[in-house]
Amino acid sequence: MMTLSKETLTIQREPDVIYFRNKAKEYAVKIGMSMVGQTKLITAASELVRNMLRYANGGEAVLEIVIRNNIKGVRLTFADKGPGIKDVKQAMQDGFSTGRSLGLGLPGAKRLSNEFDIKSEVGKGTTVTIIRWKNGL
């Protein structure tokens, strides 16, 4: 996998979410992703950015265009220095939430992505990486 272009944004306030979503959409349009693909990507991004704001007071979001086997994709990485997640497996289940949300954020974002990776350490922070390929379902 190769990175073709990269950009890092800092997420601190709620309106940053809108800006980030627009940026992610721009990237998806650039590689020719379908409307449904774009919508899935920015919806997943929206869930993950919100998590970062709500549980870690913000963090960094990285946008990348990647290429693997000649197929382009958008990779988004969300890194925060928040409290971390105690039980990642539990957090990935539908309907589980420590806040007062629907608990669809993490598992939903996973379903909306083609590739999903989460690393979390209590007290250190959480990093979530998602990829949507141009032709992904």
């Binding site: 409307m35 919508t39 899935k40 869930e47 539908d94 598992p107 939903g108 379903r111 909306l112």
Partner: peptide, 14 residues
Amino acid sequence: MQPAVAITLVELGL
């Protein structure tokens, strides 16, 4: 609701 939004919501589980 836009088609893409509807499809995404279903996938999200809502």
